[in-house]
Design a protein around this nucleic acid. Sequence first.
DNA 1: TTTTGAGTTGTTCGA
DNA 2: GTCGAACAACTCAAA
Length: 475
Amino acid sequence: MQASPKPTAIWWVRRDLRLADNPALEAARAVGSVLPVFVLDPHLLSRAGRRRTSFLFAGLRHLDASLRQRGSRLIIREGEPAEVLAGICAESGAQTITAERDYTPYALQRDARVASRLPLHLTPGLTLHPPDQVVRRDGRPFTVYTPFSRAWMALPLPGPGDLVPPPARLDTPSGIASLPLPEAEAQDAEFPAGEGEALRRLESFCAPGSGGVWRYASDRNLPAVEGTSLLSPYLRFGMVSARQAAIAALRAADAAVSPEARGGAHTWLSQLIWREFFISILFAFPHARRRALRPDLQHVRWTDDRQTFEAWCRGETGFPMVDAAMRQLGAIGWVHNRARMLAASFLAKHLLLDWRWGERWFLQHLIDGDLAANNGGWQWVAGTGTDAAPYFRIFNPILQGQRYDPHGDYVRRWVPELRDVPAPFIHTPWRLPEAEQRRLGIRIGRDYPSPLVELGAARQRAIEAYSLSRRRPSP
DNA sequence: TTTTGAGTTGTTCGA
DNA sequence: GTCGAACAACTCAAA
């Protein structure tokens, strides 16, 4: 063992790919020399789709570049984290490992394994408030969003002065071997990775006057409009911290000049709170990862129809809003929130397919794919979760299209074969008269699928299947 | 312990 | 076309 002259801490990077406002990095710096390490964990990598993996790899390159500017670098290793870290501790003589605490079932198990044999020091940072601190008076977890958010807001909130700037220099021991940085695919056009890009987005979204946050309350519902922050992939990998985002939201609310603007900032903040709510839910109810949170909805008789599922995956259901969502997912690995809800609701309700099939597909393909947020969102839409949508709240993809994509811009962008369909028919192309189809050169059923189900009957079938499960005494 | 008010994002039906 | 009620009761959270 070759001890370095100065005490050394390993900064174990997991999903906190940033130098600013990073408690795990600060904890390592407090020890002395900092050895930044990222472990390629086969267990996690095998579950992420190509696009998210590439985003992560590009993020590692950016982090490494930032570290090198500060006299440091990122050590890449591969394998079972406890084994790998034990090896690096021995090589470097590091006395401590710092890391941002993560709350998924796998992360908890992994970190317990590491902590059982190595000095692992976990810090907050993934959330503003640790999930086990936003609880009811009796200590039990909240299971309804609104009381959770009230309790969350009642805890001390950070201000701009709490943000820790990135270190100007980092002292890192030399001579520690690293694998080459993994190759990312060509830079993602929609979501360039990196802390710099994340901060630019946050700043422009909250920019006085021009920022999207001021119109967020209304524009966030329009999938054809760039009305959301587009920060989800960056929050997913901690290229920006939830705290940085929340502080920006609180400042925006303070600076708002109109009730609408203030409402926009609050609505956006509430989305950050939703993120923490779902992290808390999965932490408190780990079984939700694999089955319905609500015991009475664990026995819905899904149709188990693979072909229908595959049509949904491909974006060939015959319902333009659903198909636009699924094509957007395939094309850029990100889907507008309203379109996500629509596509998810359509799968679980109208197609009566097991929501977990859709959950897995989303988790694999989304750049921002996050176990807690994805599972929470799916269970909410499917009505199986805590604080779920009532059974009768079933999105109608036609009405939703007419309401939130009235001109069909979103549909035309992602379902190009419907490009020339006039607006009155854009959400119901099967109603185009034959002559009109000929004139436009599009044949429904050949160039674009006929609807997979009849909405009214499918809705009825879903309500019945759900109530049947609920009537069954739960085991 | 009991009571009370409330519950992200909707749709349909009938007046 | 617009509006309000119904949709099914239930559970949560706090007083």
